[in-house]
Design a protein around this nucleic acid. Structure first.
Lengths: 249, 249
DNA sequence: CGATAAATTGAGACCCGTCAAAATAAGTGG
DNA sequence: CCACTTATTTTGACGGGTCTCAATTTATCG
């Protein structure tokens, strides 16, 4: 472990460092990891980072902005699979096939850090702890998806969505009071497997009940506790410290 | 690479070998992998392999039988997250937290191969290709979940479920004509986010339409093509050969 | 200011869940 | 092997949550 200030610089530069940090990489490991994160990508609103069926080369971490991931199913319908905010990692679902299973589109002017996957693998081959952390990240994504996939009412889903965004927002150190939605109602609806109108109605209901305040895409969480109750079991598990991820046989 | 017959023996002994095979491990790697797969677990119908909140020690591969995975949400309702058939790997969702996020229960007399995770990591540290394959397996699970999570009608879901079971069945070399369901209608319904009655009705509809023949838990696929049409986009992506999983920068 | 897009609100229809009951299978004990 | 019980599956009737269609309102942008 080395100069914590230097580390912060790296984190700011490429959030990937953050994702792999908890496990205490040594100076050389962080350096070699930072060395392959030199690629940058800037996207205007509406621009695509990659398209479904594209050859998979790199993972990306979001530095600024927001993106949506979606795929077109056999019937040509759009299916939003997720939203990526600063600090998030994109592209893990493409690793196994070498082909992107979904498209990634910027919802706002965004800046990303490109992580060539073959280079990441090469570094990880020499820094096993890095490989292990990658496995942990993916494990978490699998577990989270299982919770999200469960069956919930429209109100629970919308409330849960707001709470999820809030949690991710404050996890990155953003103020919590004001939540800024970068995505349209239509995208939210598609993501939550609801109709656009249902999302709008649910939001209105939450506002009428005094739990939130809506002004277009600016949302203020007025009563987090009652919002949590509205979300029911539609809330992601609490944050686990990396210290807990230790195993015995 | 070494004696193919020897390899088959290993595969029979522990399906984990199969899962990591496509990438051409050398003799020593296969040996060391096989060495940590000595643990065996036998479960009678209804017995649990592990429980939600249990400390996570090992992954498991199914040798024989069938299991269901489920968790209890905050409201105490059961949520079936998946079914594990011979060849499947269990427990990946627990890696990140070190705690099992779900319980695994045998639906039939089952035999499993235990894979202590710390040992697997140690071997993987020295055989990077193994770590890479683990990442690929998880990537595939993430991508599959995204497809499954999408919004579909009851009929599409049930038809898709039957096709998924059929595909996994024949992938393991079982005869395809007769499909044997190890799980109850209630479990299927929970897994598909439907009511038990809706699953039953959908199956009846499929039978009336002449696509399948039902006798309790024995199901015969009469018209696979029309069944595929009924499933709509509720079908998993085609099998990808490992040869495609090669990257450039 | 006018045009386009996004968001909200309303009315009606439909799919599916809930409640209820019957049919069938699987045990259980005599 | 047969009554009895219990669990599972199937089928029916009904109601409710959500979708679809449609209109209105509000914001964005030239």
């Amino acid at each position: 472990m080395f100069d914590i200030e230097r580390l912060r610089d790296y984190s700011r530069d490429c959030p990937l460092i953050d994702l792999f940090l908890p496990d205490g990489l040594d100076r050389d490991s962080v350096e070699s990891l930072a060395a392959i994160c030199k690629g940058r990508a800037s996207l205007e609103t509406g621009a695509h980072l990659f398209l479904q069926e594209d050859h998979f080369n790199s993972l990306y971490t979001v530095r600024q902005g927001a993106l949506k991931s979606y795929f077109l199913d056999k019937d040509g319908r759009e299916r939003v699979t997720g939203f990526s905010l600063p600090g998030d990692l994109l592209g893990l679902d493409a690793v196994y096939s070498g082909v992107h299973r979904c498209s990634a589109q910027a919802l706002a002017a965004s800046s990303l850090c490109q992580v060539p996957f073959t280079k990441l693998e090469k570094v990880a081959d020499q820094v096993p702890e890095l490989h292990r952390q990658l496995v942990r990240l993916m494990s978490r994504e699998i577990a989270d998806q299982q919770i999200r996939a469960a069956d919930h009412t429209a109100l629970e889903r919308v409330a849960g969505f707001l709470l999820d965004l809030t949690r991710r927002s404050q996890q990155r150190g953003f103020p919590v009071e004001a939540l800024k939605l970068d995505m349209s109602r239509s995208d939210i609806a598609n993501y939550l497997r609801l109709a656009t109108e249902t999302v709008s109605r649910s939001l209105s209901d939450l506002q009428r009940a005094g739990l939130i305040k809506i002004h277009l895409r600016d949302i203020k969480i007025v009563d987090p506790e009652r919002l949590r109750i509205s979300a029911g079991s539609m809330t992601t598990a609490p944050e686990w410290s990396a210290d807990h991820a230790r195993y015995r046989d």
